[in-house]
Amino acid sequence: MDEMVVGLYIFVLAALTGREVITKVPPTLHTPLMSGANAISGIAVVGALVVSAQVDSGIAQILGITAIVLAMINVVGGFLVTDRMLEMFKKN
């Protein structure tokens, strides 16, 4: 239970940090913000790797590897498409 409480502290403080940082993102960058944030939510890949590493067969492995595929689509696709968009934003 202790670990969970510490986790909650971390979660709340990170959410507040996120709020401070993201409130100041201008509307013109809201789409890249969303796709970039989306890529970051692909951090689930770390969880997928941790679980997959511990098993070498069975349903758990199939689930873990499927999670890796989905999360990597998110990570690679998200960062690349955000980069593609931000490359286009030019000043006069």
């Binding site: 986790g7 979660f11 996120g18 944030a37 970051i40 939510s41 689930a44 969880g47």
Partner: peptide, 26 residues
């Protein structure tokens, strides 16, 4: 983002909790 955070609680991993919370806030 919240889902990633929750997964972080499942496997006890702080980087998932933090990154997920940031996305959740965004």
């Amino acid at each position: 983002g919240l889902a990633a955070s929750a997964a972080g609680f499942v496997i006890g991993n702080n980087v998932l909790i933090i990154a997920g919370a940031l996305v959740g806030a965004a």
